[in-house]
Design a protein around this nucleic acid. Structure first.
Lengths: 156, 156
DNA sequence: CGGGTTCGTTTGATTTTCAAACCAAATGCC
DNA sequence: GGCATTTGGTTTGAAAATCAAACGAACCCG
């Protein structure tokens, strides 16, 4: 492997480790388990999502997802809605409390980053963004965030 | 917050989510828990590290670290060495088995990335690396990887 | 020496997670 | 239409991960 590739990989690992440990701390700060935090974020992203989908997305089993959702529901962070078409199915979305939870959760690392980033020259910002987007593309991660659109299959 | 900052943040979250879910899958593939995997990586990085340090690094309690290390030791993935100076202290390092474990663990995502990255023009690579390094700096993550140097305080 | 701190372990309990069995709804096939 | 199969979610029972608190041994410092 080329030395350049190495450099890039090292930087990426540093970034991902930094953010990972950030999210651990974040979970702790908001009295959530890491899974719960991730679940909330994921639900927020999808706006509404079924347990199974969420489970595969988070690589957890369906059973685990049941208990996870029950906890979040009990704490009034997510709302459970029945699918009108398929009666086996649920959809979970965030309650306002849940919204607030992840919004005002101190985005410590990202906050700090934002400040520093904002102080860069325009051209520097542009350069960094384009590099980041190249990376996202190379990771095939473009559609991870997708857009605030319902994460379900079309209705036929 | 500026729109540009937003773009950068979105890209970064995509990257970190992609790598996070990668590491979950990775752990599963190598029959390790996520914590165990991270611990191995962390030990590898530091070459040798004490349980407490590792615990704070991973934001786990010392008690948890004890059981975690016992498991890894039982599976012969890490080696426990006594500190000659401070007799309370242990140092953990990877055994050859442990080395192999994390080396040949399919670096799925990163592998794929490497391939694509290697195909870029030199100047593109350079640009991406410099952007990444700016980010690392802004995240104060420069010394996360530090270098393969013993991770202890100087001996006085 | 002696009080305070640090390192790692133990203990007992809680939480997370899983696999397997299960039910109900949907789908497919004849 | 009816029967077998698949799919979405829950339950159950057990294993693994984690924690807080208490502990002993080693260290530190006055």
């Amino acid at each position: 492997m080329s030395q350049r590739t190495d450099e890039a990989l090292i930087a990426m690992r540093q970034i991902s480790r930094a953010t990972a440990s950030d999210s651990r701390a974040l979970a702790k700060a908001s009295a959530l388990s890491v899974s719960q935090l991730i679940a909330l974020q994921e639900i927020n992203r999808a706006r509404a999502i079924s347990p199974s989908k969420l489970a595969t997305k988070m690589s957890l089993s369906r059973g685990t997802m049941t208990t996870l959702m029950n906890k979040l529901e009990a704490r009034n962070l997510v709302r459970r809605e029945a699918d009108t078409i398929d009666k086996r199915r649920w959809y979970f979305s965030l309650t306002e409390t849940g919204q607030k939870m992840i919004e005002q959760a101190p985005r410590m690392l990202h906050e700090e980053f934002s400040e520093k980033f904002a102080q860069l020259q325009q051209w520097e910002q542009a350069q960094i963004i384009s590099a980041l987007e190249r990376i996202v593309a190379m990771l095939d991660a473009e559609d991870i965030d997708a857009a605030p659109i319902l994460d379900t299959q079309e209705i036929t």
